[in-house]
Design a binder for these strands. Structure first.
Lengths: 206, 206
DNA sequence: GCGTATCTTGACCGTAAGGTCAAGATACCA
DNA sequence: TGGTATCTTGACCTTACGGTCAAGATACGC
């Protein structure tokens, strides 16, 4: 460990620790409902230490959202891995389901942000996401024109995919209770993913 | 107006006013993030007056949830209006879409409650909703057995319907932004409802 | 080992929030 | 018209929260 490497590592590690804790607490209690002290407790550090790394709650929140955005976009990019509708939709749905399984808190923070009026994500939604959506809408329209899929409203289709896949993260608790009080096992979740893929493919006639 | 009729009316009217305001503010800021003073301001009354009608914030929140539950169950009951899969699914999806349009705040309060771990709805989910779900799962399985629909996982299908229809309430802001910054018109919403019906029917091969 | 930069933390400050209270206003009944 | 029950509201109390600070601890370069 040379120079400032060690120090930088300490900072990185602590920031990561805090961001992780923040994502969880924001997911459960929302932005306004979250106390920085709760996040600090979750991270196992004093509140003052948290404020050393992140000046304000708002600042921390924005960084939490940024992290989620990155991973969300990574899942989105899988849409372009293949060309044939069936492959594309299967891959995309699987990626989204995987995201819901791996980052349920991130999904919930996103949902809460939107339900609060998207004060922070507003800009992203109006630029990057709008662009991404419009391009995929065009692709789906082309599929329909080429009669590779049934003619459907591309927006409605994409919203259905988003809603359904994110449901498994956002409503995890409800699903658990309806599953007899126990969380879906890894095996069951894989089967469910297949079923969701099947439903989505069916909805466009595949 | 005789006897205590008038007074009872005052109480009813004020309780309704407060419940309406509370549903909106809870939807936007969540339970913990909501200040009773904010609800009072939204309702146009002093905070002390609100506390005269509802002793505690928790109490008010529970009554808000109860109201939503009633309407949610009303939409659910449309599932039993018809018998043929196509009619049933169309009617149910339409009712859920209508609910999302008419009570977007209610839908969001529900979503936030679940995301917070369903501390209040826990009991309802484990009893009434579980029973309702299991019965509909059986109906859907029967449809598949009788080859009226494609063989699909009934849970996945119902979750998809819930998620997709509620998405139009919970993510209204995101949808608006992606729609060029303006909300969906009544006409456009009706078309979207038809598209969602089409997708759901398609997903089971109808 | 020493000096300096970063990190850690308990104590503290001002504001906001849930809830109470008591005094006054309003409506109903006799 | 007077008496009583309900309703209204500003002021107030206590706790919690976002954020600050200053004093000490730790780590790095020389």
């Amino acid at each position: 460990m040379s120079t400032q490497t060690r120090k930088i590592e300490i900072r990185k590690a602590n920031e990561a620790l805090i961001l992780e804790a923040a994502e969880k607490i924001f997911a459960i209690n929302g932005y306004k409902g979250t106390a920085t002290g709760d996040i600090a407790r979750e991270a196992g550090i004093p509140k003052a230490n948290l404020h050393y790394y992140f000046k304000t709650k708002s600042n921390l929140y924005q960084q939490v959202l940024k992290r989620i955005l990155n991973d969300w976009m990574a899942a989105a990019s899988t849409f372009d891995t293949y060309h044939e509708p069936e492959e594309v939709l299967r891959t995309y749905v699987q990626a989204k389901m995987e995201f819901s399984r791996q980052r349920p808190f991130g999904s919930r923070v996103w949902a809460r942000e939107i339900m609060s009026g998207a004060p922070v994500l507003d800009n992203f939604l109006g630029t990057t996401l709008t662009t991404w959506l419009n391009e995929r809408v065009r692709i789906i329209r082309r599929w329909a024109r080429e009669e590779k899929i049934k003619s459907v409203d591309p927006h409605a289709l994409l919203y259905m995919i988003w809603a359904t896949t994110q449901h498994y993260a956002d409503f995890e608790r409800q699903i658990s209770i309806l599953n007899g009080g126990k969380e879906l096992s890894d095996r069951r979740y894989r089967q469910t993913t297949d079923e969701v893929v099947k439903l989505v493919l069916g909805s466009v006639g595949l």
